[in-house]
Design a protein around this nucleic acid. Sequence first.
DNA 1: CCATTTTACTTGAACTCTCATATACTTAGC
DNA 2: GCTAAGTATATGAGAGTTCAAGTAAAATGG
Lengths: 149, 149
Amino acid sequence: MTRWLDDDEQRTWRDFLAATQLVNEALDRQLQREAGMPHTYYMILVALSEAPERSMRMSELAARAQSSQSRLSHAVARLEERGWVRRHRCDSDRRGNYAVLTTEGFAALAAAAPGHVAEVRRSLFDVLTPEQVGHLAEICAALRNTLEQ
Amino acid sequence: MTRWLDDDEQRTWRDFLAATQLVNEALDRQLQREAGMPHTYYMILVALSEAPERSMRMSELAARAQSSQSRLSHAVARLEERGWVRRHRCDSDRRGNYAVLTTEGFAALAAAAPGHVAEVRRSLFDVLTPEQVGHLAEICAALRNTLEQ
DNA sequence: CCATTTTACTTGAACTCTCATATACTTAGC
DNA sequence: GCTAAGTATATGAGAGTTCAAGTAAAATGG
C-alpha cells in the first residue's frame, strides 16, 4: 500500500532535512548573537521596511513574512515592547490593524543587515556552484508555487 | 563593504526560505495531527529504531537525529513519559545514558510512518521532476558536507 | 434591517527550543 | 594518587510557536 522511499530518496530526504536545518540554524544563531532577534523577527522588519510608509496590515504582513497570524501577533507585541514597531487601528476597516516600523526599528534592521547577508552567503551561496544556485532557484520556485496557500 | 544580494539571489533566497518552511510545516502538521508528535520526536524514534537493540547513547542519538544535546534530553524526557522510550545508565561509562525504544514506541513509529512518507512524497518528491530531485540531492549533500560540524 | 456568517486580529495555555549552568563521572598530568 | 581539565548528560528559566478559543467589526442574504 505505502510507497516507501528507496535508498536514493531516503538519502536525498535526509540530506534535505539536515541541510535546510543547518542553514536555518546558522542564520538564527547569527541574528540572535549579533542583533538579538530571531530570524522570524528579522523577516517581519524586512517586510515592513519594504512597504509604503513602512507600514502594513497585520494579515498582509503575516503573508509577506511567512508567518501565521497568531505568531505575527505575538511577535509584533514583542517588537512593540522594544520600540521597533508600532500598531495603530485602521480607520476604513476597524477590525484591522496596521503595523508600522519605527525609526529605531529601521535602525535596528539596518544594523543587523550586513552581518545577516554575510551569513546568507557563507551558509548558502558560497557553498554552491553558480549552476547549483540556478537549480536551487528552480526547485524552490516549484515547491513554493505548489505548496503555497 | 557588504556585498548585498542581487535581484536573482534575493529571489532565490526568499524562495528557499519559503519553500523549506512550507515543506517543514507540512511535515510537522501531518505528524502532529495524525501521530501526536512533532517531527523532531519522529526523527528520534526513527534513529533509535535503526540502531542495534533499538538503543543508543544520548550523544550519538543527538547527532543522528540532528538535535542538540539539550533538546534531545528534554525530548527523551517527554517520550519517556509517554512510554515510548526508556533510559538506562551505561555501565562502562557511568556518566553516559542509553535511550532505548520500547515496544510501544516502535508501534507508535510504525503507525505514524505511512502517513509521514505520504506527506514527504506530497510535499517534496511529487512536486519535482526526477532531474530536479537529482539536483536537489547534490545541493543538499554539498551543503551538509560544508556546514556540518 | 436583522440574523448569520465571515473576516481580522488577539489572547492564553501548553509545548518545544535555546542558552547558561549544574552535576557526575572520567581522563590527564605530575 | 591527587588535582585539574574534560566529557556526558540534565535541568531551569526565558522566549517563541501552535492551537483553540475569544472579541469585534464587516459583509451577506433573506
